[in-house]
Design a protein around this nucleic acid. Structure first.
Lengths: 128, 128
DNA sequence: TTGCGTTTGGTAAAACAATGCATATCGATT
DNA sequence: AATCGATATGCATTGTTTTACCAAACGCAA
């Protein structure tokens, strides 16, 4: 337990949650990291640029996206090799829908998290 | 997309979520696995017996519990070495409170998950 | 037709996490 | 005091995940 400057106290830990899609065997398909990656692809137009901005390896991001598409059963990005800029990657309609839906999902969870956490804290302190 | 015997269709992926406590640097303190471990300790009275039942290594479970206590700032178990049975591990009051509160947390989340997932699916299919 | 920058994809290395093993400690019971 | 079974903990080994590196394919533009 630490004390902040304003005198209020807070536990030295954080409350976390995560929502994601996986295969039936548990391998991740879409999670927060991939959502961020897709957003970067959308705003930058290339996977290379996106991973550099996100600070993750191209190899992994590329493999993850491939795996995600294989398991979702549809394309979320369209990729082009060659051309004046060397190539590019953009989101498909479905890709856009996916990040929108995922975003809404996160928000929905966020709403209940605050309350759930408070209830958790309160329950912990019950007559102790 | 697969088709079930009754003709209904379902996506070939699962919806997952997880809630847990972590340090401010992201290291896990209490999650579902540790919750299960604590429940086993409660019903079996020893860490050794609990890990054998859970199928995880004693080394890790022991380290995890130590880390959890250090970061929560209080004891969740009391351990005894020696004695007629060689030793034992039981939950403290606070340990009991913790698993109760965590359980309630899970339940609270479970409630909203179903609905959130349905909404997610619906949103994905919007005019597509 | 050569160059450029990106996607594609294989593979080795590195980083990280979990397990196994060994050994010590403890304390009620015999 | 000797025993016994569980806790305590360091360290080597194994296992898994991520990164690094490389070479090739691609196609527009100069």
């Amino acid at each position: 337990m630490k004390k902040k400057k304003d005198g209020s106290r807070y536990k030295n830990y954080l409350f976390n949650y995560k929502v994601w899609l996986s295969t039936i065997t548990g391998q991740g398909i879409i999670d927060d990291q991939k959502y961020e990656l897709l957003k970067l692809i959308k705003e930058r137009g290339s996977l290379k640029s996106a991973v550099e901005s996100a600070g993750i390896s191209y190899r992994k991001a590329w493999g993850d996206l491939k795996f995600a598409e294989e398991n979702l059963g549809y394309q979320i990005i369209t990729k082009q090799r060659g051309g004046k800029d060397g190539g590019n990657t953009i989101l498909t309609e479905k890709g856009e829908k996916l990040i929108e839906a995922y975003e809404a999902l996160q928000e929905k969870f966020d709403e209940s998290v605050e309350e759930a956490f408070r209830e958790f804290q309160r329950k912990l302190k019950e007559n102790s």
